[in-house]
Computed example of a mutant assay.
Amino acid sequence: MARGTMSEDVQAQIKRLILRRKLVPGDPLPTEAELVELLDVSRNSVREALKALQAMRIVEIRHGFGTYVGSLTLDPFVEGVAFRAAVRHHQGEASLYELMEVREALEAGLVGAVARSLPAEDLTVLRDLVDRMEKEAAAGRVESGTDRAFHLALYRSLGNHLLSEVLDAFWDALRRVRKDLDDSSQDPEVTWRQHAEIVTALETGDGDRAVEAMHRHFDGIRERLKGVV
């Protein structure tokens, strides 16, 4: 068996072991020696497989302590998407627009449903975040952490953890690419007002208005991207 194929086979066996034993993030895995015996493969094959799985956040190797089930986050996906977009941008492709359009399609397609059944406590969180944006805008810049918290809170009521992670992944990927390309253009007052428009629509339960406000928000991002395209 080729070396790469062997490593992939061992990775698959370790993943099946995690599923079979119903392990969750943070649970310990068998030691290297135990995996060698359980899987009937060489120690080098186990080590290569564990390193590959660690890169995917499926396992976490804590030197001196052992190997554990990893965080299972979408970080590798974000890094891959962001780097892909940066490379294609430098090749003259419209990769930033493509990345933004994926986000826009997801968020504009969901915000109407959110408007119809947004819990009062989530609306309060969104109002507080917009108030924070207003203060930050007055100081000269809306912080990316505030913007991120807003978009995460916006879809929390849907109760879909994977959806929240995917939306956050595309948010983070676009932020990383723009940071790498030194895109610091932002009109903080426009950013604050666009988010405030979304909240105003949500307060009235007007899904169509919320969708329109979301598209205007992305029109603003689209306009700022012209400076780096």
Score class of each variant (00 low, 15 high):
residue 21 R to M: 10
residue 216 R to I: 01
residue 83 F to Q: 05
residue 88 R to G: 01
residue 221 I to M: 08
residue 212 E to P: 02
residue 27 D to I: 02
residue 164 S to N: 13
residue 219 D to I: 04
residue 171 W to Y: 11
residue 196 A to M: 04
residue 10 V to W: 10
residue 38 L to D: 12
residue 140 G to R: 10
residue 114 V to I: 13
residue 182 D to N: 11
residue 89 H to Y: 13
residue 147 D to K: 14
residue 52 A to V: 00
residue 3 R to E: 06
residue 198 I to K: 07
residue 135 K to P: 02
residue 201 A to P: 15
residue 121 E to A: 05
residue 140 G to D: 14
residue 111 V to P: 11
residue 225 L to C: 04
residue 123 L to N: 04
residue 121 E to S: 12
residue 201 A to Y: 12
residue 11 Q to D: 06
residue 72 L to W: 15
residue 149 A to T: 01
residue 124 T to I: 04
residue 156 R to N: 05
residue 69 V to T: 03
residue 149 A to V: 00
residue 31 T to R: 14
residue 179 K to V: 14
residue 128 D to T: 03
residue 13 Q to M: 07
residue 179 K to N: 07
residue 229 V to W: 07
residue 12 A to M: 05
residue 13 Q to W: 06
residue 30 P to M: 04
residue 2 A to T: 01
residue 228 V to N: 01
residue 82 A to C: 01
residue 222 R to S: 09
residue 41 V to L: 08
residue 187 D to H: 11
residue 97 Y to H: 03
residue 127 R to T: 01
residue 96 L to A: 02
residue 157 S to M: 04
residue 202 L to M: 09
residue 151 H to P: 04
residue 170 F to S: 02
residue 116 R to Y: 15
residue 51 K to R: 13
residue 110 L to M: 10
residue 138 A to G: 01
residue 52 A to L: 11
